Amino acid sequence: MNTLIDAMLELSRTSRLPVLVRLVDLGQLVSAIRAELEVDLLERQVRWKIDALPLVAGDQDLLRQVMQNLLVNAVKYTGKRDEALIEVWAEERADEWTVFVRDNGAGFDPRFQEKLFGVFQRLHRADEFAGTGVGLATVRRIVHRHGGRVWAQGQVEAGATFAFSLPKHL
Rank of each mutant, 00 (worst) to 15 (best):
K76Y: 06
D59R: 03
Q45T: 11
V19H: 06
L4F: 12
R102L: 08
L170R: 13
M67L: 15
H144W: 08
A32S: 14
E92A: 13
R64P: 04
A74Y: 02
W48S: 04
I50V: 15
T98D: 01
A90R: 07
A158H: 13
Q28P: 01
E114G: 01
L166M: 13
V139T: 05
W151S: 09
D6M: 06
D59F: 07
D127R: 06
R81C: 07
A160R: 10
V150H: 06
G154K: 02
L53N: 06
E114V: 03
V66G: 10
L62P: 00
G133V: 07
I33Y: 02
Q68C: 01
D40S: 14
H146M: 08
L4H: 13
L9V: 10
P167R: 08
L63F: 05
T138K: 15
L29A: 04
R140T: 00
G118H: 11
G107P: 15
M1S: 12
A52E: 10
R122L: 11
Q60G: 03
I33Q: 02
L166G: 05
L123R: 09
D82W: 02
Q113S: 13
K80Y: 04
G118M: 09
M8Q: 08
L166Q: 09
V119N: 05
F108N: 02
A106L: 10
K80R: 13
L71K: 03
R16F: 15
R47F: 04
V119K: 11
V30I: 08
R145D: 05
E92I: 11
R149H: 09
D59N: 12
L123I: 07
G107R: 05
T138D: 02
L70A: 07
R145S: 12
V101Q: 09
M1A: 14
L37I: 00
W151C: 04
F112Y: 15
W48L: 04
A152M: 07
F162S: 04
L23E: 13
I142S: 09
W89I: 04
R141C: 02
A152W: 04
L17S: 05
R122C: 10
G105L: 09
V139S: 08
G148Y: 05
Q153P: 03
A163Q: 07
Q68T: 14
L166Y: 09
E87K: 14
R44T: 13
S31W: 01
A126D: 03
F117S: 03
R81T: 08
E10A: 14
G148M: 09
T161R: 14
I142C: 10
W89Q: 07
D127G: 00
R13E: 14
R44A: 11
K168I: 07
E87S: 12
G148L: 06
A94N: 11
I50H: 10
R149S: 14
L63H: 05
Y77D: 01
V134G: 00
G135P: 03
E128D: 14
E91Q: 15
V143R: 07
D61I: 06
D51H: 12
L26H: 06
L62S: 08
H144Q: 15
V39N: 02
L9E: 14
V66P: 02
G79V: 00
L63P: 11
I50C: 11
T3R: 12
H169Y: 11
R81G: 02
A130E: 12
P54W: 08
D95A: 13
